[in-house]
């Protein structure tokens, strides 16, 4: 039982780091900071989902984490794509 408590505490910690990172993403002085949103949500969100599995007792969350990991790459590429008429 205490093991699940530890998992929940780590989940809370990961959520806190993710929220603080999202503040940086939202107010970020440069546009590049904003592009890191997908990166941040990818890694922290996947860690959060994995740690949440023993707490919530839903084993299917691992498939959600798998989809997240695939989607993070797609989102980054979509964010950094350039316009058609633009050079390079």
């Amino acid at each position: 039982m205490s093991l699940s408590e530890i998992h929940l505490a780590v989940a809370l910690l990961l959520l806190a780091t993710m929220s603080i990172g999202l503040i940086r993403v939202a107010i970020g002085p440069t546009p590049s900071d904003r592009l890191m949103a997908a990166q941040l949500l990818g890694t922290s969100g996947i860690g959060l989902l994995l740690v949440l599995i023993p707490v919530i007792r839903v084993p299917a969350l691992i498939d959600v984490a798998l989809v997240f990991s695939l989607l993070a790459a797609v989102a980054i590429v979509a964010f950094t794509r350039r316009r058609d008429g633009e050079d390079a």
Binding site: R34, L41, L48, V64
Partner: peptide, 12 residues
């Protein structure tokens, strides 16, 4: 971009 971040957090 903020809306996409919102959607990912909604999945959580």
């Amino acid at each position: 971009i903020l809306f996409i971040a919102f959607g990912l957090l909604l999945a959580l």
